[in-house]
Simulated scan of single mutants.
Amino acid sequence: MDLTFYLQTFDHFIIYLAVSLVLFAIGTYIFKLVTPYSERAEIKNGNTAVSLKLLGKMAGLVVVLQSAIRHSINLVDLAIWALIAIVIQIVLHLVIEYVLTRNTNLAKEVEKGNIAVGLLLGGVSVLVGMIVAATISY
């Protein structure tokens, strides 16, 4: 095992980690912008449904970022793929949440604490993230 190789590439690890964490924060922030209620306040008040939904969104985002990291050829490529994937994931989530369930306001159900709906939407975010992640390749 050549320890010098790892020491020489450690800076790349740190840079990719920092950029990925920033992209994660940006994606999470954008998700919070499209949510019609304060997730922070709801979670602080003990709303498990909101917590499950947010956790699913974040997990789906991590899956997408992981794929972007694996398939990128440099930092610019990583940022471009990650931002495209974040936007696609948000759009698909909104389509699923609002268009396919026209007769039920799922956001209101989650805000009211409906754990089943929160878990479903969080799970859908993970599944959509997996599909989006699988499409990031060369």
Rank of each mutant, 00 (worst) to 15 (best):
L121Y: 06
K32Q: 07
G113R: 06
Q8F: 08
V50L: 14
M130T: 00
A18D: 06
M130N: 02
L83H: 05
A82K: 08
V132A: 03
K32P: 00
A41T: 00
S51H: 10
G122S: 02
S125Y: 12
A25T: 11
T135V: 05
L121Q: 07
K108G: 00
K44R: 13
L120V: 12
R102T: 09
K53C: 06
G123N: 07
G27D: 04
P36M: 01
A49L: 10
N47P: 13
V110A: 05
L120A: 12
L23H: 12
L75G: 13
D11N: 12
L94H: 05
V50P: 13
L65D: 01
L61Q: 10
T48L: 15
G27Y: 06
K53A: 06
G122L: 01
A49V: 05
A68S: 12
K53R: 05
L127C: 08
V19S: 05
V19Y: 04
L92N: 05
I73S: 11
V91P: 01
L52G: 01
V126Q: 07
D11G: 11
I80K: 11
N47K: 05
L83Q: 06
E39Y: 01
K57R: 04
F13I: 10
L106T: 04
A68L: 07
S67K: 14
A79P: 09
D11L: 13
K44M: 11
I14V: 15
V19P: 05
K53Q: 09
F13T: 09
V124E: 03
V62K: 08
N103F: 10
L83N: 05
L119P: 00
I30C: 05
N114I: 02
N105A: 01
G123E: 06
H12I: 12
I43H: 08
K32H: 07
L119E: 00
A59P: 07
T9N: 15
L120N: 06
